[in-house]
């Protein structure tokens, strides 16, 4: 399971990376915004994308739209982990095809639940 973590704050990337490692996902890579993430996704057989929303360059929501518009990446599971907590934004992310939405600050338990749920649905 190869996972790409996209967040402009390196500490948040590190936190997510640590949580994922605890959950048994050790093969992770990082990008600091959508612009750097997109070519990595296109060239790198990733199985899962965890992305922030608010980033300079390309935002997480735009990254999600690019992923869904790319035939090779369209079915990639995407979990949004973000401080954006407006109902309209959550609806917007859902309409753009997000697979899960976690608001910051979050717990390891919540992250695990959402990831399990995504794979349950994608696998089944």
């Amino acid at each position: 399971m190869k996972i790409l973590i996209v967040d402009d704050f390196s500490t948040m990337r590190r936190i997510i990376k640590n949580l994922l490692r605890d959950l048994g996902f050790t093969n992770t890579q990082e990008a600091d915004d959508g612009t750097t993430a997109l070519p990595m996704l296109r060239n790198g057989d990733f199985d899962f994308l965890v992305t922030d929303w608010n980033m300079p360059g390309m935002s997480g929501i735009d990254l999600l739209r690019h992923v869904r518009a790319d035939p090779k990446l369209a079915s990639l599971p995407v979990l949004m982990v973000t401080a954006e907590a407006k109902r309209d934004q959550i609806i917007e992310a859902a309409q753009a095809g997000v697979n899960g939405y976690v608001v910051k600050p979050f717990t390891a338990q919540v992250l695990k639940e959402k990831i399990d749920k995504i794979f349950e649905r994608v696998g089944g």
């Binding site: 608010n54 935002s59 954006e84 407006k86 934004q89 910051k104």
Partner: peptide, 8 residues
């Protein structure tokens, strides 16, 4: 519309 705002 719906530009990112950071934590509420």
């Amino acid at each position: 519309p719906h530009s990112a705002e950071g934590p509420q």
